[in-house]
Design a protein around this nucleic acid. Structure first.
Length: 574
DNA sequence: GCCGTTTTCGGCCCGACTGTTTTCAGTCG
């Protein structure tokens, strides 16, 4: 198993604790940076250490000698003394309270030292009984602010899956566009970067009358609370759950503001460092040479004056995109209109609600050449998996629909379960009849490692795709135990594609693993896993993951024509 | 704690807002 994530968490916690203890803020930042780098790292640190030793670890940007040695200590002994030492200094429940808006490390430390606050309960108490308010530097407004933050914290601890945010953002944007004062408008932040979950939603506007625009915004249907309202910024809670911030900026700062509010933070820090090296200064108002503004109206020019190509938002995570932009080596990212079909859709035959004709019609409407209808196989009883006779019946009906609807080709597919021993849920003579076979794991025992059974299934020449390879559900469950690197390696060897399941709660593979697969030369297949025709739009989410994973059109099965797709299958089976 | 075709020491992104201050600290994005 890959230890990058565990180490990232450890360093994150060390960072939080040191910050709380009032240690050097740059040291705190160094630990956090190391945590982020490890989280994003495609290679397994353990492998790097095995192959290249301590020196190898130190070549990772953000990892120096001290942290590299801690990584080694963890790999060899399973623990890190510094971590244990630091953990014992501070009650860990307390540190979680740093997520409360308005409550930072200094105030929390003060409450801990002077009032003995050790957890959420204690905090509530000192807020209520006035003891926090009496401490030096504190006052009634700060206390009130923390109380509000605490309320928000308990209600909105969880991030929002992007699939839930999209309809809300689109609605707000289209309503704002109706206002004649609004000249330019764009969502920014993690939403624009198409991150799988987002904290709050930022929308940027250029317009004539800030007060009017903001007031209109705070009065939109769906607003349940107005947090702030002025000439340049408004902030509301929609539907008791989604915080949306609207900012109004002057036109000549549009590009700089868009760049700034899109982030990510790490990306912006690096952009600003580059500016600084060139004697320039970047802020949300523009790029400045001394007092003089030399860029800011468009994002393109902001990047250009820094010697960078414009970087697509999905790449802005400081994962090498800036280095690539410097030498004009950014990938030619796939676009949604290059997608020629959906490769994982359910029909009424199993647990979907659409019949085959509806699926075909909706596919034509979306401009697709094909849709692979992949219903569940017989073992998945809870999803009405198809017995063989039903499957054969479905194949017949697909033929008829294809004759009736020449504008699109439905591919006779199945989402075949990978059974406990790695066998597939249909025999080969049945699989042979299918146009497209997606293999998936739906049933596993607690703590079972499913790597071996998936690898075994990949020996079957009829398998085209491994669906939702990690089984995770965003915000709900971790997924099964699986060594994704082994799966990727096997996919390369057998020329099997791995799925980007575009259903908003899955997004599986995620961006990091997608990029790793690409680097290993593995093709990716995007499927919405739609169970009704109202979910086919989620292709957009899958394309977002693909772009965040640096994928180009040729990395993706769905950009092939139906003939090319069939040819790809034939070649593999020989 | 990291890092270096301006530095192996001395930096480390930038600006706004808020509240408790009388010149600034804390927090946020």
């Amino acid at each position: 198993m890959n230890k990058n994530k565990t180490l990232a968490q450890i360093f994150e916690k060390i960072g939080d604790t040191l910050e709380f203890m009032g240690d050097n803020p740059f040291k705190v930042n160094a630990y956090r940076k190391a945590a982020r780098v490890l989280n994003d790292l495609v290679e397994d640190v353990e492998e790097i250490y095995k192959e290249k030793g301590l020196q190898g670890l130190m070549t990772i940007p953000g990892i120096g000698e001290r942290i590299a040695k801690k990584i080694v200590e963890y790999l060899e002994t399973g623990k890190i003394r510094k971590y244990e030492e630091v953990m014992s200094l501070v009650p860990q429940d307390l540190l979680e309270l740093l997520d409360v808006p308005g409550l930072g490390p200094k105030t929390l430390k003060l409450a801990y030292d002077k009032l003995g606050v050790k957890n959420l309960e204690d905090l509530k108490k000192v807020l209520e009984d006035g003891s926090l308010e009496k401490l030096p530097g504190m006052g009634p407004k700060k206390v009130e602010n923390i109380k509000k933050g605490l309320e928000l914290y308990t209600r909105m601890k969880d991030r929002i899956p992007i699939g839930l945010a999209i309809p809300i953002v689109e609605d707000i944007v289209s309503r704002l566009k109706e206002l004649k004062e609004v000249e330019l408008i764009s969502p920014c932040g993690s939403f624009r970067r198409m991150k799988e979950t987002i904290g709050d939603i930022d929308i940027l506007v250029v317009g004539q009358d800030g007060f009017k625009i903001i007031r209109y915004f705070t009065e939109l249907p769906g607003v349940t609370k107005v947090l702030a309202q002025g000439e340049t910024k408004g902030s509301c809670i929609f539907e008791d759950r989604y915080q949306v911030d609207l900012r109004v900026v002057p036109r000549d700062s549009w590009g700089a503001a868009l760049q700034y509010f899109t982030g990510s933070k790490a990306h912006n820090i690096k952009v600003r460092s580059i500016a600084k090296q060139k004697g320039l200064k970047v802020s949300e108002y523009g790029v400045f040479k001394g007092e003089k503004k030399i860029a800011g109206a468009s994002e393109e020019e902001v990047y250009k004056v820094l010697g960078l190509k414009w970087i697509p938002p999905e790449l802005r995570e400081d994962r090498g995109e800036i280095e690539a932009a410097l030498i004009d080596a950014l990938p030619n990212l796939v676009e949604e209109d290059e997608i020629k079909g959906d490769l994982h859709v359910h029909s009424r035959y199993s647990d979907g609600t659409a019949d085959l004709e509806e699926i075909a019609s909706k596919g034509i409407e979306r401009g697709y050449e094909y849709i692979a209808v992949c219903d569940h196989s017989r073992s998945v009883k809870y999803a009405r998996g198809l017995e063989i006779d039903r499957l054969l019946k479905k194949l017949e009906e697909i033929k008829k629909v294809n004759q009736k609807k020449p504008g699109i080709r439905l591919l006779a597919g199945a989402e075949v379960d990978i059974l406990g021993d790695g066998a597939l849920d249909y025999p080969d003579e049945i699989l042979k009849k299918l146009d497209f076979v997606v293999a998936a794991t739906h049933i596993w025992k607690k703590d079972e490692d499913v790597t071996e059974r998936i690898l075994k299934a990949m020996d079957n020449p009829y398998v085209d795709v491994i669906a939702h390879p990690t089984g995770r559900l965003i915000g709900q469950r971790e997924g099964y135990k699986v060594d994704i690197e082994k799966i990727i390696e096997k996919a390369r060897e057998k020329d099997i594609a791995l799925e980007i399941n575009a259903y908003y709660e899955r997004l599986d593979l995620n961006d990091i693993n997608v990029r790793l697969a690409k680097e290993k030369g593995v093709k990716l297949s995007i499927g919405t896993d739609a169970h009704n025709i109202g979910q086919l739009w989620m292709m957009r989410l899958g394309v977002g993951v693909a772009r965040r994973g640096w994928l180009e059109p040729e990395d993706i099965l769905n950009t092939l024509s139906v003939e090319q797709l069939m040819e790809w299958r034939r070649k593999r089976r020989k």
